[in-house]
């Protein structure tokens, strides 16, 4: 059988491209310059924002943690605790409670 001769086929290929493909591809490639410049700035801004956000979250978590630990280790003063509770009750309610208490005492007697 006769040997294959490369010259018979040359550089022909069976591949095809859509019409106008190379013009579009060149346009897209040229647009890379402007896009990349913007993208570069965006990337820096995005990274800075991410670092700042992460730092804020960490600081917030640290503050909450410290407060929780403090609250756990602080002894509660009963007098202060009841005083704070009473300060939230109105004077009228206190008078009513006191009146009820006096009635109970007098009934017991």
């Amino acid at each position: 059988m006769k040997d294959f001769d490369f010259d018979n086929i040359g550089k022909q290929m069976p591949y095809r491209v859509p019409a106008g493909f190379f013009d579009e591809a060149k346009q897209r490639a040229t647009n890379v310059c402007g896009e990349h410049a913007v993208t570069g700035r965006k990337v820096i801004l995005r990274r800075t924002a991410a670092i700042v956000s992460a730092a804020a979250v960490l600081i917030g978590a640290a503050i909450v943690g410290i407060r929780l630990l403090d609250a756990r280790h602080t002894a509660v003063d009963p007098e202060q605790y009841y005083a704070s509770l009473l300060s939230e009750v109105s004077d009228d309610t206190l008078e009513e409670l006191a009146g009820n208490y006096m009635e109970e005492i007098s009934t017991d007697l």
């Binding site: 591949y15 190379f22 591809a25 060149k26 490639a29 040229t30 890379v32 310059c33």
Partner: peptide
């Protein structure tokens, strides 16, 4: 310069990649 580079090499590089 980049636009000229794209103009010169888009076709040969596309075919290289396609193959």
């Amino acid at each position: 310069g980049f636009a000229a580079l794209v103009d010169t090499y888009t076709e040969p590089l596309y075919w290289h990649i396609r193959r």
